[in-house]
Nucleic acid binder design. Sequence first.
RNA 1: GACCCGUUCGUCUAGUGGUUAGGACUCCGCCCUUUCACGGCGGCAACACGGGUUCAAGUCCCGUACGGGUCGCCA
Length: 439
Amino acid sequence: MPTPVRTRFAPSPTGYLHIGGARTALFNWLYARKHGGNFILRVEDTDEARNTEEARQAIFSSLEWLGIDWDEGHEAGGDCGPYFQSQRQDIYATWFKKLQDAGRVYEDDGAWRFRFERKPITMQDLVCGEVTIDYTDESNTPDMVVRRSDGSFVFHFVNVVDDLEMGLTHVIRGEDHLMNTPKHLQLFEAFGKVPPAYAHIPLILNADGSKMSKRDTGAAVHEYPDRGFLSDAVINFIALLGWSPKDDSEIFPLSELIERFSLEGINRSPSRFDWDKATWMNQQHLLKLPPESFAEAGLPYLQSAGMETPDNFTLMAKSVQEKVQLLSEVPEAIRFYLGEGVEFDPPALEKLSGNEAAPKLLTVLAENFRALPDWTSPKDAIATSAEAEGLKPGKLMFPLRVALSGKTGGPDLGDILSILGRDESIRRIEQTIATLQDA
RNA sequence: GACCCGUUCGUCUAGUGGUUAGGACUCCGCCCUUUCACGGCGGCAACACGGGUUCAAGUCCCGUACGGGUCGCCA
């Protein structure tokens, strides 16, 4: 029986969660979920000067938003704790002692360096294949500091100790760690332990090919919900940045992503961030949402836009579900329903003014709307009016749309009529007629 | 600079010696439609370059160029 898979995400809390970090977390998480293993969240907070509590919280909340949950770590417990490196000093001291006893470390300026074995180190990377780094040349690979002069331990050392103590089977991390791997391998060897399997994934670049850094658009995970993204869409998008299902499918629910994920599908070359495609992908996920869920998801954006929640918001939202790409577009998309009267988009009014028959048609429409016994099927009045004028119903649609919404595009007319109600619909038609006559 | 990893349409990618080099985003055209959007159809557009190996190379080898990464008592 194979040993159960154990993977981890090990952020250091020095800033918000970066999109590249999120993808690293995602791949580790997917791999664990796919193989029924455990995904561990370990906080690498050994650099006291740069760690902040806000950063810690930002990372947790971004992971939670993405739906990347952990089986061991902060608030999840687990048998290999503590999961904060700042609380593992005695564990490190114990392992450091082993290095000392084995004569593998020596003091240098108050710090302790690990003596590398001077030989070529070959790794079998699950993504990069066989990579050999020659440690024979000392000038290229000076012995590394594992313990600082202030007694604290350095990244390479704690990372390896934790990976072995926590029984990690697979380490999926950014390619920026590829050159660190021989160092880690040497440490494992010195401890007489079997290292995990490594998979180094290529980095994510900006649209222009430059390195994506803190301030770049799209870099911070927390800005995605603000911009109106669904977490599933972000997950889907970053999964496809550097990983391919090897066929033409692109839109995946999380469950399918887990099922289909594999290390073999990971690319070797860095990929660029494409905001247009991310937006399109969000729209695809929005389209798949049940209408009620869509309305619910759009609700918070009303507040951000400074709008009150209208009584029939759910209906309004449903009417624009396939019109928006981002949830943040919902407030603007439904704004025309609100208040009394219409506000015209200049191009819409201009087009309507060009139609000399418009005032007459609108007058007839208003009459027929009034004549309707009830408002269960307001579109009937359009057919009636068209017949009276000897026109196809289509001829009335556009003037009516502009009269009701002030726009050239938007939801289905039937939806608009029923959401607006009879009184408001007639009011807007009359207002439009008046505006047309003034002009 | 040294050492590593890479290079298929503008972008994300499929492609593991024989393909009209496929899909997606973007852009353009058409269709659907009361509008917009969705959807459908079609178009533009790629194997970085130079040498090999081979009957045959996007696919294998070498070099060059370009991009990325790493060279800390950061992680």
